[in-house]
Simulated scan of single mutants.
Amino acid sequence: MASFPYRTALIIGAGAGISASLARALTDAGLGVGLAARGVDKLAPLAAETGALTFAADAADPASVAALFAAADAQLGTPDLVIYNAGARAPGPIADLDPETVRQSLAVTAFGGFLAVQQAARRMIPHRHGAILLTGATASTKGFALSSAFAMGKFALRGLAQSAARELGPQGIHVAHFIIDGGVRSAARPDPEGRPDSMLSPDSVAQTYLDVLRQPRDAWSMEVELRPWVEKF
C-alpha cells in the first residue's frame, strides 16, 4: 500500500468518540496530530496515549482560530489535514429557545467550520495539496423536532463543504463531508439490549475517514454517509 498522503493533522473540536479514534488511527499511520478544544484538560489522557499536541481554542472565535493555526504551524508543523468535529446543540421548542443560545450553537457548528476551512485553505492553496474533512450528522439532511438550531448549523456545514469542495478540489485540496447517521457507541452509550450493531463504532468511522483520505484524486468522494447496517432509513 502506498504511504499515507498527509503528514500533519489538526482535529478541531477534539474529545472522546470519533475524534479520539481518529487521533489513534492517524498516529498509527505516522502523522503528527494536534488536538484542539475549548478545554484541553480532558484531552490529556488521549494526548499521552498518542503523543498528540493539545491546543486550547474557541472554534467560533476568528482570532482564536487564527491563533490556533499559528500555534500549530510553530509547534506541530503546518497541517495538511484539518478535521472539523466541533458542534453545539440548543434543543427545545422553537417558541421557547433563547436566541443567544441559538446564535452560539450556529457559531460553533457552522461559522467555526468556515473559520477552520478558511485558515486551512490559506495554507494549502500555495502547495496545491491538503485535505479538509467536516463531520456532519443525521441533522445534516433531516431537521428533527425540538432540534432547529442543530439542524440549521449542520445544514450550513454541509453547504460549506459542497461549496469548498467545488472551489478547492481543482486546486488539489480534498474536501469531504461525513454524515454520521446514527448514534456513536461508547462505554457510556452501548448498543441497546436486544439491538446489537445498532450503534456506530467510532473506530469504524475513523477507518472510513482514512479510507477517503487514501482515495486517488481522480475519484475523490465529496460526501459519505455512515450508518449501522441494521438501521432502517
Score class of each variant (00 low, 15 high):
S3F: 00
S3C: 02
P5K: 09
A9R: 01
L10C: 03
I12M: 08
G15I: 09
G15M: 10
S19E: 14
A20T: 04
S21R: 14
R24D: 10
A25S: 15
T27N: 05
D28Y: 02
A29H: 01
L31A: 02
L35N: 02
A37M: 10
R38H: 14
V40G: 01
K42N: 04
K42L: 03
K42Y: 01
A47C: 05
E49Q: 14
E49N: 07
G51A: 10
A52H: 05
A57G: 07
D58N: 15
D58Y: 02
A59R: 02
D61A: 05
P62L: 09
A63E: 15
A66Y: 03
A74C: 08
Q75V: 06
L76N: 09
T78W: 01
P79M: 02
V82H: 06
I83C: 12
N85S: 15
G87T: 08
A90N: 14
P91N: 12
A95T: 15
A95S: 14
D96Q: 15
D98N: 15
D98C: 09
P99K: 11
P99L: 13
R103K: 11
A107L: 09
A110P: 08
G113K: 03
L115T: 01
A116N: 05
A116G: 03
Q119T: 03
A120H: 02
A121C: 04
A121G: 10
A121I: 01
R123Y: 00
R123K: 05
I125C: 00
I125P: 00
L133C: 12
T135P: 10
G136R: 05
G136D: 10
A137S: 15
A139S: 15
T141A: 14
T141P: 01
G143W: 03
G143R: 07
F144W: 13
A145V: 13
A145E: 13
L146T: 13
S148Q: 05
S148N: 12
A149M: 11
A149W: 00
A156M: 08
L157M: 11
G159N: 10
A161V: 09
A161Y: 02
Q162N: 11
S163W: 00
A164L: 04
A165Y: 01
L168V: 07
G169I: 04
P170S: 10
P170F: 01
I173E: 00
H174E: 07
H174M: 08
H177K: 09
F178Q: 12
I180A: 07
D181A: 15
R185V: 03
A188G: 15
P190H: 02
D191H: 08
E193P: 06
E193G: 00
D197G: 13
D197F: 12
D197S: 13
S198M: 04
L200Y: 12
L200S: 09
S201Y: 03
S201I: 06
T208G: 04
T208M: 14
L210Y: 07
L210E: 08
V212E: 09
R214L: 11
R214P: 06
R217Q: 12
A219G: 09
W220F: 11
M222H: 11
M222V: 13
E223M: 13
V224G: 11
E225M: 14
E231N: 11
F233D: 09
F233V: 11
